[in-house]
Design a binder for these strands. Sequence first.
RNA 1: GCUCUUUUAGCUUAAUUGGUUAAAGCGUUGGUCUUAUGAGCCAAAGAUUGGGAGUUCAAGUCUCCCAGAGAGCACCA
Length: 1123
Amino acid sequence: MFEPLPNNPSFPALEGKVLSRWKEGDVYEKSLQNRKDAERFVFYEGPPTANGMPHPGHCLTRSIKDLFPRYKTMQGFLCERKAGWDTHGLPVEVEVCKELGIHSKEEIEEYGVEPFIHRCQESVWRYMQEWEALTERLGFWANLDEAYVTYHQSYVESVWWSLKNLFDRGLLYRGHKIVWWWAQGGTALSAGEVGQGYREVADPSVFVEFPLRDQQEESLLIWTTTPWTLPSNQFAAVHVDLTYARVRDGETGRVLIVAESLVEKLAAQFKRELTVESTCSGSELLGLRYDPPFDYFYKNLGDNTGELIKGGKQVHQWRVVAADFVTTDSGTGLVHMAPAFGEADYDVLVAEQERFQEGEGPQLICAVGPDGKFTEVAGPYAGRWVKEADKDISRELRERGRLVLLDQYLHDYPFCWRADDDPLIQYPRESWFIRTTEFREDMLANNQQINWLPGHIKDGRFGNFLDSNVDWALSRERFWGTPLPVWVCSETGRMEAIGSYQELLDKAGLDGVQVWEKAKAENPELSDHLKVHKPYIDALTYASPFAEAGRMERVSEVIDCWYDSGAMPFAQWGYPHSHAEQFKQQFPADFISEALDQTRGWFYSQLAISTMLFGEHGAEQEAGAEYPHPYRNCIVLGLMLGEDGRKMSKSKRNYREPNEIFDKYGADALRWYFFANQAPWTPIRYKEQSIKESIPEFLLRLWNVFSFFTIYANIDGFAPEELLSGDAGELSADDLATASSYREVAERGELDRWVLSELHRTIEDVVSRMDHYDNYGAALALNEFVDALSNWYVRRSRDRFWAAEKQNAEKLDAYWTLYECLVTLAKAIAPFVPFLSDYMWQTLAGVFGERVPESVHLCNYPAVVNKLKDEELSVRMATLREIASLGRSARMNEKLKVRQPLQKVEVVLGDETYKPWLESHDALLREELNVKQIEYVTEADQYIDYLIQPNFKRLGPRVGKLIPQVKAVLAEANGAELLAQFDADGVVTIEVGGEPVILDNEDIQVRLQAKDGWAAAQGKNSVVVLNTELTEELIREGYARDLIRMIQDRRKELDCDFTDRISVALETDSLVLKETLAQHGDVVAAETLADNLVIGSLNAECVARNIAEADVQLYVAVNSSLE
RNA sequence: GCUCUUUUAGCUUAAUUGGUUAAAGCGUUGGUCUUAUGAGCCAAAGAUUGGGAGUUCAAGUCUCCCAGAGAGCACCA
């Protein structure tokens, strides 16, 4: 006996039961154990950060990340799923700062680096429980107990090893560059991080005059959106090929120099008359000296000169120089250059420096400190945050008459990705870089081999990103991160990189270990992993191998946390210091998946590091791994949008919490919604309503079939566990075939053969799609099968299940067929909806006890049984279903209810291929349409017109431009006659534009068109015509069915069990109803399990009904249950 | 500015890869079937396939231009 199912399933409750069974039975562990010697399917988990709450987007990634490993495991692969946590970096530090109510780097230092680090380490696990709960609740199977953690010593040491490798190969270098600088945080950010923080803001837009030194009434006019950079101005740049104009300002009478082509535009913008006085080329302006807007540096350095390499002297700065990047797209055609705050500006300075003899050139001018505030040199602005000083600078310039226009300018500007109120500034800084640009070609080659889904990522977004690769700004002047493992000699400045903690301990003259030991002694709770972190690691110094008196001291920086996650393919194993074997077995990954925002995050960091270490030009001993690595297939998920179609955001609260969804609808519902609603890379609109709607369509429909089966199997005592002895395997077709009463499928009825064929066709389709990472297509195929199973197979088999004779072979066939469908389906849907599938398995297969696997997730994915597939039957049945549908449609048009039997329908087929089959299998159709007779007619001219159209695909290439005429000729011709001609000769010749065109059968397509005046419905391939004539006999039969329906409804109202026997009586004046009862009473009684059915009354509640346009008093009493 | 994606019924999506009545689901309305069903079935209403041009016998599909949306890159002097 199958465990009876609840009437109204609560999926969340059911999932809870399944979860606890998984836990108690160690099912996940067993699923791996089962495959311990199998070929591997390698999955990498992109580590999330656990110091923020998980949200619906994480549910999507985790669902996809679970689906394919489950599928591959069932397909026979060993797929370990090592979880991981990203624990370093700004996100963590920022969280801790918020907690402490501090913000700037100085404040952290005041608070103390040591306690700060401790708090960071604790904070990392803040939402751990929520993450683990979500992971489990969603059914994401992963090895959480052995998760890799980026701050753990072994992980850090792996990262060190890789950095040492790069350092030793000259790929890790310290450089002076203009970097994007987070002033409040006191650190540079990488291109990737900067890119995440762009936001549209309105900045000031100022036009400023730089008066010519020797011509004070004339000015260079420049434009900037960063007035705060003006005090650090060093040059004005022009393009030598542009034409410039001297224009008279109608308002001030002064002369401005601007690009000629911009005069009109500027005049309009300034709302002033600008009269061109003369023009000259850019090259003529070169060398002109001007007064910078502020004299903080000018007053001392204004006349400084230096010796040029080519001979002669030149003034250092505040003169016009040439630069190619100057355009007239915006501004004035003259550009203010503050080399401290722009990469292009800086390049100009370097180029200028190179014109001078060594040490003779201009030096960088910078009026701003690393804290983003003006330094002492900037007079009244000293100590002020630059962005905040913009206004006053503009005001001062206006007062001094240097400002032509102050406006607003709307543009995107980067902010710190983790402190989004802090705008970044460009700033000159010494920083560590990885020479990724040297590997650009290698990375591109590697990328070409990756199977990206969707495909356009490869040459689109990701390829473009690689194309514009810049060296990776690796270092962070921060605290909580992997320390940069470079030690510098205090005497010579020479450096070396360290690859492990032990390597340090082995250094001669090591000192500083006591700092850690002391801290640990004072606080034994301290995690040992902290010893490789700041500040403890900074304390370690050793004797310099480069100078006798020298000490080796670590540089102060930590590294970009994106490097941590990118090192995950080897660092998760502590490679090469430990687990080298695991690394080799699990490299590269077969499958990874994250959202689109990881293109320059994890997708890039992994690819870059792997290419540099293991690629064609990687380190010698490791090099040469075949591309692609470290991942072969990558599903790039679309961004998830909130209920309103906008970006999901905590502050807008435009989404439901995952837990709310789990509690209301369950994890399967959410998963199925993700898998079956759209290709995973399209942006997903996360709406509660849509999740809700995905339930009835699939889960509930499946549940109903499942429930139907258990109800009837229990009633009839269908017990497969008794019919099948010995080991039951995994209840595959072969296993079931050994059961008694299980008939060879070939011997069963059409419907059984059909549904099993559909089942195996579906599985074949699903496997092929899943092997190509197409979960959407696979889910659609499964959905379609469940629909067919529920709405055609079960519906049309109902009579067999309801038949009284329990050992009837056809009835048993129905049970075996449906049972086989359900257990196979449970396996097929297991990776998608792991809970419901396992619940089905436990119920359906559970009756076998130990003789079958305890969980569906320990089974193999169902194999396609080719001999059960019958493509032809599939097409035939589809035709049959279409005819049934047309029949119903025709009935509706005539307002002939399905319960009213009809004598005959005639079916006209456009294509008669299946006519013989249809004729011999029309019982099903007769019943479905409730007619006595079905006739397939060939000569149907009276009912229909034949519309003949050319087969465009075939004829198009042949007749080309004549096609419209061919179409017209065929349309005008008598279709029936043409067809007759085809039948007779096989070809037909028509005259088109004076030329004969010979057409054969395949050159045309026939459409049927029902003629007016018939109760007919037409489809693509057939027309169904009803015989609407009703006899008394037919009408009485219809009433009998009405009576059955009326009594069944009453049974339902009375909450009868399926097997309850009843007594029925009814009172009516209707003669025809009385006749009906006399004639069909037996059938009515049998159908409704009535022991007696009489005209009259009963000792039971009386209800009023209306049948056959007559009033009826109905009495129904329950007798007893059938034993 | 450049690149990628995208635009089809009120909403969500389809259209055999260029083949001729643009198809479903949800929702709405009406009808119907059913002792598994919250399901199903039948139908009505709902479309100038974002706009425009071009190529072609034939364009939702290919090309170009324009517009909207989303994202990325760069710049923002």
